[in-house]
Amino acid sequence: MKTKVLIKKCIRGDTKAQKELYDTFAPKMLSICNRYAKSTFDAKDIFQEGFLKVFENLKKLKDENALEWWMKKIFVNEALKLYNKNKITILIDNAKSIRHHQSDDFNVFSKMGTDEITVIIQRLPDKMRLVFNMYVIEGFRHHEIAQLLDISVGTSKSNLHDARRTLQNEIEKFKKIRLLK
């Protein structure tokens, strides 16, 4: 079914068309949700809320060629919403999380599959994870990230720097393990 027709049917509430749209984009969107969430449980939450938003707002989509990009934006926004909702908890947890994960997940990079990297990214502190995903994978600029997360450009840059360092440390550990073997 052509995208334009599919969108029209979805707007009308056609369940079959909604399922088709879901089947087409769900795997990609769930991958995004996994990167942004700190657990699979949160990722599922973002995923479901995101899809409901997509179906609810499809009529506002102006260019059907931009559907995937538009959907991505919705899912990232949903992730940010969850982040904002849990902001206070995050501030308390942020300091502890790196040390905790460094000791527990020594061999996480043993296979370096994308899903394993996703797990490592998930374990980054919230702000680092969001900044890292938005800058590196989605291609946002620092001033955009600063605006969306309500932080300064400097904080965004330092979070990105910290995220990279953490990931590079993890990769180094992975390398050492491989050499030992």
Binding site: P27, S31, T114, I117, V136, I137, L167
Partner: peptide, 11 residues
Amino acid sequence: LKEKYKNHVTP
């Protein structure tokens, strides 16, 4: 990482 996630999907 960008390359890794370019076409990554999670069913």
